[in-house]
Computed example of a mutant assay.
Amino acid sequence: MDLFSAEAELLPIPIDDGELYFMQQLVLPVDNAQVMQRLLDETAWKAETIFLFGREVAQPRLSAWYGERRYTYSGRTFEPLPFTPWQLEIKRAVEAASGKRFNSLLLNYYRNEQDSMGFHSDDEPELGLQPAIASVSFGATRTFILKHKTQPKTVKIDLADGSLLLMAGKLQHCWRHGINKQRKPCGPRINLTFRLI
């Protein structure tokens, strides 16, 4: 598959039912600290709630939805804000690195070690049969965990400052992913996941 440049790595997963590509540093015109500060300042962060097991619960992080299409997950529909110029700059870099096109962006702001992402799959119908989802991280390193849906298999990847992970193929249908809370203190992290709806 002609994804990513020579700097990218195809990560092995235990079962041939998905694709993971990893790049240690996405190439941008400014350093990672400046990228993160601009995202902190220019994003309309919200404390959202979702429906989980029949009740409304607060997400353990801040988030924002941007782009060209609305998106429905966990019982909520999110109307997009228009891309900011800085988000478009990052989107162009991600598209150049991955060879994929994206029209929507979910941003998550993990303020400290107590913020997390529950295990889930990005398999909503509007994403298509085999969605490509690009995940860019800035700030503190957090461990991204994938758990197979039918096999006792787990994959852990440390997503460091400036890294880019692309999930593709059948991965969303066969695996769930998330980020746990951690005991060890850590600083803030911003994650951008680009999708095509």
Score class of each variant (00 low, 15 high):
Phe138His: 10
Glu9Trp: 02
Ala47Arg: 11
Ile90Gly: 15
Val27Asp: 11
Ala134Asp: 02
Leu39Lys: 10
Glu56Gly: 06
Arg55His: 11
Leu159Glu: 01
Pro29His: 07
Pro125Ile: 06
Ser163Thr: 07
Asp161His: 07
Glu56Ala: 14
Arg101Tyr: 05
Thr77Leu: 07
Trp86Lys: 05
Asn112Trp: 13
Ile50Lys: 09
Val27Met: 07
Trp86Val: 10
Phe83Cys: 12
Gln37Ala: 12
Pro131Tyr: 02
Arg183Ala: 15
Leu62Arg: 15
Lys184Val: 14
Gln59Ala: 06
Ala140Glu: 13
Asp161Ile: 04
Trp45Phe: 03
Gln34Tyr: 03
Val94Ile: 03
Arg55Trp: 03
Asp17Ala: 11
Leu146Gln: 01
Glu79Asp: 08
Leu146Lys: 01
Leu166His: 08
Ser74Pro: 10
Asn103Tyr: 00
Val30His: 01
Thr84Asn: 09
Phe83Ala: 12
Ile197Phe: 13
Glu42His: 13
Glu48Ser: 15
Lys156Thr: 04
Arg76Leu: 12
Ile145Arg: 04
Pro12Ile: 00
Tyr109Asn: 08
Leu192Gln: 10
Asp2Gly: 08
Phe22Trp: 13
Ile190Gly: 03
Val35Asn: 02
Ile197Asn: 15
Thr150Arg: 15
Ile179Arg: 07
Met23Glu: 09
Gly118Ala: 15
Phe119Met: 08
Ile179Gln: 10
Val94Trp: 08
Ser63Glu: 03
Pro82Thr: 07
Leu159Pro: 03
Ala140Ile: 07
Gln151Leu: 08
Phe22Ala: 00
Ala97Phe: 01
Val57Trp: 07
Glu42Pro: 13
Ser63Thr: 14
Pro29Ser: 08
Gln114Met: 10
Phe119Ser: 06
Asn103Ile: 00
Ala97Asn: 01
Arg55Gln: 13
Asp115Ser: 13
Gln182Lys: 11
Ser98Leu: 05
Asp41Lys: 14
Asn180Pro: 02
Gln59Met: 15
Ile90His: 10
Arg142Asn: 13
Asp41Asn: 14
Leu28Tyr: 02
Thr49Ala: 07
Ser63Val: 06
Tyr71Ala: 06
Gln182Pro: 07
Gln25Glu: 09
Leu10Ala: 12
Pro185Tyr: 14
Asn180Val: 04
Ile145Trp: 00
Thr84Val: 10
Leu165Val: 08
Gln34Thr: 13
Gly67Cys: 02
Val27Ile: 11
Gly178Asp: 05
Tyr109Ile: 02
Leu171Arg: 09
Tyr73Phe: 09
Asp161Phe: 05
Gly67Arg: 00
Leu165Arg: 12
Ala134Cys: 04
Asp16Arg: 13
His148Cys: 04
Leu40Asp: 00
Trp86His: 14
Thr143Glu: 12
Leu52Gly: 01
Tyr21Trp: 15
Ala96Pro: 01
Glu79Ala: 11
Thr72Asp: 01
Ile90Asn: 11
Tyr21Ser: 00
Phe4Lys: 12
Phe144Gly: 04
Gln59Glu: 14
Ala58Asp: 04
Lys170Cys: 00
